[in-house]
Nucleic acid binder design. Structure first.
Length: 731
DNA sequence: CGAGTGATA
């Protein structure tokens, strides 16, 4: 208790409570360290607000929701799960008594789906809004739409909902304006100054043409030899870069003579630690341990160290200025993982990591000119970069028909929304008038991408969900197949993985996933089994948890009276693949020349089977395949592949070509009359040609080469690969 | 002939 009184927020306690009482919407800003996340809910609780309902506080990340709840429970001297609790997926630590509830933003979105008035809540606090996570952005729009009209605010509620939006100081005017010019309450932060310097290595013309890994290593070593004691944090973009940088650092650090080369004589060595998401947890834990006396720690990390993990004692930052970002590209209809310059706000966030405990320094390897010309002010929010199919379905299920004019804080491009509508229509999740179908209502219940949800529901209606749920779970977690960096071990891992594919009987990557899932689950020492087979045990464990949850949801849906029931008379193997077709008919490709396949999604992209697939090198036998996802590297690859027969998808494919975007956009904007629907249907009947039309369309598309975007991505990849090789040869 | 930034329901 006494400690919390020293926080900057404490002086403003009374004003803050008053500000929440005075208006239904409030923006609170304050840097990390101001105490807003832990204190504000406690103040409101002490002010007696909870007699009318709960306080819900959202976080973009699970760990944050859990750890903050733990701390607040401690401060309020109550058992976690009583007055103070948390809820994240797979872990609900709340009871009847819980009035201060920390949760992930995605959890609250689910709750709105069940009760759009949030009648259990008195206050909802959206925290870390500046991070602009997809769920937080949707919540912002929903809360504005549902509660900003004073007449509606109380409809169905006894008292209006209080909405507090908390963000770092940037961008607060925009938030306030968005929420009807609501009041803004600023809390001073408590961080230490970080001085930033620019480098000379990366200029505005050098986006991809500089080996920044080498430069980052040079700067880090310079810090090590010329700066006072204090740990270093280096930001790079990915695992291979990090490994490369660590190798270089290790090499160079060995030749340092600590009698002459080092400015601070208390420093006698450098401890180099890589850090990225897929690293084993025990190795990750090492990062947090203080270095031995007189040794300087140097952590080389991905963006994971920018928000998710906080390392104490960091005094120096070396910033490469780049990040890997998944961007949705509607022109080719897929997501492409790209290396892009970070935004200025992200650069400040990175720099701030050096000022947590004392004053720090940040060394940017790029020039001031690069900062000014190539780095955007803010990161493009997720909602403008990702596939919106799930989001649009959620909105539709909440009765929001006009998804184009929904109050987005930042509007996604209209074509992204139309693309989502098109996909939902193709999946039969919405009808021609843009209304949610029975199937759509079922799909939204499953925490899965819509295609996968459709496949799972198909299986459930056929009574064979045991085949599909493990697969859906496996595809929901990170890649479970480990592929080590060293060539010898790589071979060993590949052999093990091939053996697993063969064991599944049929050559089908989805079946392999099922085999791995079942084999590991029935093993008496699963973690050892994973180790033997080069499988990610941590990832597989989370797949088990996902599968359990999916099973519960499906069982619940099946108990509904109108859940569809179908029968199928045939082999299990065919049944399995027919279920996949129900969800993946948008991802079907037909064999073209040689190893090439041509997708049938209307883009007609030329793709190849990825070498990790069990179907790689067997292309000659295949005519039609279905795939889970696409990867653009040196070529356009399809990953997780399964052979199918044309007959299984032939009735579904025409639907991929019948949708007219102009119709969709008018459907999205207004309710459509019966007359209009009839008009469209007759027009379509006239348009629709016999069965061969699909093949015709495809042949036409096949000629059109893959779009510039794909070529660009490929060119960039090749260039980067070349640099990496150059970097290696320098060793 | 070859790949895995980071979150989340």
């Amino acid at each position: 208790m006494s400690e919390s009184k020293h926080l900057p927020i404490y002086r403003h306690k009374a004003e803050l409570i008053q500000a929440v009482k005075n208006s239904n919407f409030l923006v609170v800003t304050g840097e990390t360290g101001s105490g807003k996340t832990t204190q504000l809910p406690q103040y409101l609780y002490q002010a007696g607000i909870c007699k009318d309902g709960k306080i819900g506080i959202t976080q973009p990340r699970r760990v944050a929701a859990i750890t903050v709840a733990q701390r607040v429970a401690q401060e309020m001297q109550c058992t976690l799960g009583r007055e103070v609790g948390y809820q994240v997926r797979f872990d609900d630590c709340t009871t009847q008594d819980t009035v201060v509830k920390y949760m992930t933003d995605g959890c609250l979105l689910r709750e709105i789906l069940a009760d759009s008035l949030l009648s259990q809540y008195r206050v909802v606090i959206l925290d870390e809004v500046h991070e602009r996570s997809l769920s937080t952005d949707i919540l912002l729009g929903l809360l504005k739409k549902i509660f900003s009209d004073p007449a509606k605010a109380t409809s169905g509620r006894s008292v209006p909902l209080k909405v507090v939006v908390m963000s770092a100081t940037l961008d607060t005017d925009k938030l306030s304006a968005f929420l009807g010019d609501c009041p803004v309450f600023a809390i001073p932060g408590r961080t230490f100054p970080v001085t930033c310097t620019f480098g000379s290595a990366v200029g505005p013309k050098d986006i991809e043409s500089t080996n920044y890994v080498k430069e980052v290593v040079k700067v880090a070593l310079n810090v090590h030899t010329t700066e006072m004691a204090g740990d270093i944090l280096v930001f790079l973009t990915g695992q291979s870069e990090i490994e490369q940088a660590c190798d270089l650092l290790y090499e160079k650090a060995e030749s340092i003579d600590y009698r002459y080369d080092v400015y601070d004589q208390t420093v006698e060595g450098l401890l180099i630690l890589p850090l990225y998401g897929s690293m084993p947890t025990d190795q990750q834990r090492q990062i947090f341990q203080p270095a031995p006396p007189r040794i300087r720690k140097c952590v080389v990390a991905t963006n994971i160290a920018a928000t998710s993990l906080t390392i104490n004692g960091i005094k120096y930052i070396v910033d490469s200025g780049f990040v890997k970002q998944l961007n949705h590209n509607s022109r080719v209809g897929m997501d492409i993982l790209e290396v892009v310059p970070i935004s200025k706000s992200e650069a400040q966030q990175r720099a701030g990591r050096a000022g947590r405990t004392s004053a720090g320094k940040c060394f940017r390897i790029y020039t001031k000119e690069f900062w000014e010309k190539k780095m955007p002010e803010f990161t493009v929010p997720e909602i403008q970069r990702t596939s919106l199919t799930s989001v649009v379905l959620t909105l539709k299920c909440l009765g929001i028909h006009d998804v184009i004019r929904f109050p987005y804080l930042d509007c996604p491009e209209e074509r992204f929304i139309l693309e989502a509508l098109k996909q939902l229509y193709q999946f039969d999740a919405i009808d021609r008038r843009g209304r949610v179908t029975q199937l759509g209502e079922l799909m939204v219940e499953l925490p899965l991408p819509p295609g996968l949800a459709r496949a799972v529901l198909k299986a459930a209606s056929l009574g064979c969900q045991d085949l599909l749920l493990p697969v859906a779970a496996m595809l929901s977690v990170e890649n479970i197949f480990i592929r080590p960096g060293h060539p010898n071990k790589q071979k060993e891992a590949d052999i093990k993985h091939r053996a697993l594919a063969t064991r599944s009987g049929s050559m089908n990557d989805f079946a392999t996933l099922l085999t791995v899932f079942q084999a590991c689950k029935s093993s008496d020492r699963p973690s050892g089994w994973c180790k033997d087979n080069w499988i990610h045990w941590r990832a597989l464990k989370s797949a088990f948890a996902v599968e359990t949850q999916l099973q519960e949801i499906v069982a619940h849906l099946q108990r509904k009276r109108d859940f569809p029931v179908e029968t199928f008379d045939g082999q299990k193997n065919e049944l399995f693949r027919r279920c996949l077709c129900a969800g993946y008919f948008t991802n079907v490709a037909r064999r073209s020349v040689g190893k090439a396949f041509c997708t049938m999604d209307g883009h007609g992209s030329i793709v190849q089977i990825h070498p990790s697939s069990s179907l790689f090198d067997q292309e000659a036998e295949l005519n039609w395949v279905l795939f889970h996802d696409v990867l653009v590297t040196s070529r356009v690859y399809i990953r997780t592949v399964c052979p199918i027969q044309y007959e299984w998808v032939k009735d579904l494919l025409p639907k991929l070509h019948e949708v007219d975007v102009y119709e969709l956009s008018s459907v999205a904007r207004k309710e459509v009359t019966d007359e209009e629907v009839k008009k469209w249907e007759s027009r379509e009947a006239a348009k629709r040609r016999p069965e061969v039309s699909t093949v015709d369309v495809m042949k036409k598309l096949e000629k059109r080469n893959n779009e510039a975007t794909v070529n660009d991505a490929r060119a960039r990849y090749l260039q980067r690969k070349q640099q990496k090789q150059k970097g290696k040869s320098l060793l």
